[in-house]
Nucleic acid binder design. Structure first.
Lengths: 127, 127
DNA sequence: ACATGTAATGTTATATTGTTACATCATTAA
DNA sequence: TTAATGATGTAACAATATAACATTACATGT
């Protein structure tokens, strides 16, 4: 999987150009002039981009952001600071937190697959 | 706010009796025989219960669980292990993780309000 | 060139999740 | 009594996400 399809590329570019998470139907609206016509197409593109680690879903907002890293191995060890006020979002990586969560899983005999870590508050500009 | 209203009580009891997260419309179906009739009523009850710390929303599943603690101060320092297979869910508290996230926020000049931490994987029974 | 398999696409319809708006009722505090 | 508050009921609706199925594009082997 080296090349993105047209729809995937279109959705990805839009997300990269945005400084905040976009909702699926906003993506649809914005890309309609470019040829994307239905929610299905948007969701399919998003699914693929997420699978490739190029996009993350912000579960607490039902919205999507482009990965800010060169090549996100996966969603592992990634987490987000989300500003309630301006919607700015910072993507961070912290292996220590992931390790700690992993350890907790082990204690419970659980197998860790992936996680959602989303911190909401207000960012430096809004404080 | 000492007493729960009938709707709140009804929703809360249902969630407490469940060993896995329930979706809003499942709650609605289950409580229709008890007198709850519309989504609004369910969501209103859920909102109040969440505000009181008696219920948590599982963002990655759009579902709701009763708080497993006596009296959850708030959603702070709480996180969840969620089994992909059997949907079993374990609610945990870990001040260290919260502290670490708080520290990270400080480094970025952000103010921490609350968080969503959801770990998916398979539980001990399903491994 | 042609058949075949696979992934991506287009399109329509539908399912699921969540909210708005507004009228009513009960409680209580001035 | 009146005003304020909060909970309720009801209907309509908006937003988010998926299902189903026919079609197209393209790589691969023959």
């Amino acid at each position: 999987m080296l090349e993105l399809s047209f729809n995937q590329e279109t959705v990805h570019k839009l997300l990269q150009a945005s400084d905040k998470p976009l909702k699926a139907y906003n993506i649809l609206f914005e890309t309609q002039k470019l040829g994307i016509k239905s929610p299905t197409q948007v969701y399919r593109a998003l699914d693929k981009l997420i699978e490739l680690g190029k996009v993350h879903k912000i579960e607490s907002k039902n919205a999507f952001v482009a990965c800010s890293k060169i090549n996100c191995s996966n969603q592992n060890s990634t987490f987000f600071l989300i500003c309630d006020n301006c919607e700015n979002i910072i993507e961070l990586e912290d292996q220590e937190i992931t390790d700690q969560l992993n350890k907790t899983c082990e204690r419970f005999g659980s197998t860790y697959k992936n996680h959602t870590i989303e911190i909401s508050g207000t960012c430096s500009s809004c404080n």
